[in-house]
Design a protein around this nucleic acid. Structure first.
Lengths: 172, 172
DNA sequence: CGCATTCACTTAACATGTTAAGTATCTCCG
DNA sequence: CGGAGATACTTAACATGTTAAGTGAATGCG
């Protein structure tokens, strides 16, 4: 019952375990984070060569497929929070990659659309991006990839109903 | 061949598809991002109540299980980039949650370890965190969860060999 | 109509992600 | 021994994540 568990008699690899928890590296959040990083690592160089970040690219892709959208809708589609989107749209507009105009019926809303320049830029990025995606699919296997996406969707569903946390305790 | 594709004769639901790409919302990066967000949404409130961010919590957990580590090793374990870790360690040290001392053999390295206060804080966060994880496991299914983690690991493996991008073009 | 609410964003403030530089050490070879 | 190169971090700079507050415009109701 010594107070210093760092006793060398313990062995080579030190293992403290001062608080009981499941193995850190095998937690679901970490698995998801590492997997996503492994995937994005493949795409970032290509985007970077065209002066785009991952999020900017998400916005352009979203816009290219829906023609025009309100900011809130775009946030949902590109899976970005309002404040992030607000900043990015400001920058993309300054670079003339998107266009914005307030809706006539409701002055609060603004309709965002991709510009011709934006389309041109996308066209120069998309082929390489598609090629990378194809390579990933080839390596991992198309079948398995589909299965994985299916499971990820189910996971999302399982937790969607659980709401935004709080299970029976905190009420601020 | 009109120059304005926003022709109303197009129909109600606008679908531009100005650049050919696979469906945005079904891309692997998006699936992984959404799944991870769904999971983290469950944990954040609990961490927040204790004044911890997700990354700070990762560091404490990593330290609690390995007793002491160099910064680089810790970065690998907690899956954080050096600069992020550097900042966070500075803050955690100021809050007396961790301790740091330069290694005697190599002045460049510094050994980081969790403090008693850090252990105490972890002990107050861990139970709730474990309960949330258990609930997630229950909802999604322990079997499926294991399968998912297995696939995520395989995906990571598949791409690890692919290195950090570059396939036959850019060489800066 | 008048005004409290709600809505759709935008700003602000702080923390991290990401890449490039900077600093102090340490290694190693000549 | 001495200086070039490698190491282990740390800083810097810019972009996004995250929560809270602010702003202007619609809505609803008495």
């Amino acid at each position: 019952m010594s107070k210093k568990p760092a006793d060398p008699a313990n062995g080579g690899a030190p293992t403290a375990r001062q608080v009981p928890m499941r193995d850190f590296s095998r937690s679901l959040p970490m698995s998801l984070l590492r997997a996503r990083e492994a995937v994005m690592r493949q795409f970032r160089p290509n985007l970077r060569e065209h002066g785009l970040t991952e999020q900017q690219w998400r916005i352009l892709r979203a816009l290219a497929s829906i023609e025009a959208a309100e900011v809130t809708e775009l946030a949902r589609t590109a899976f970005l929070l309002g404040p992030s989107l607000s900043r990015i749209l400001r920058d993309l507009e300054a670079r003339n990659l998107i266009e914005r105009k307030t809706a006539k019926a409701d002055q609060r809303r603004s309709m965002v659309s991709i510009s011709k320049e934006g389309v041109k830029l996308m066209a120069s990025v998309a082929p390489n991006s598609e090629a990378i995606y194809a390579e990933i699919t080839r390596r991992f296997g198309a079948r398995k990839l589909a299965e994985l996406q299916e499971m990820l969707g189910e996971l999302e569903q399982s937790l969607a109903e659980l709401g935004a946390g709080e299970e029976a305790s905190a009420e601020e």
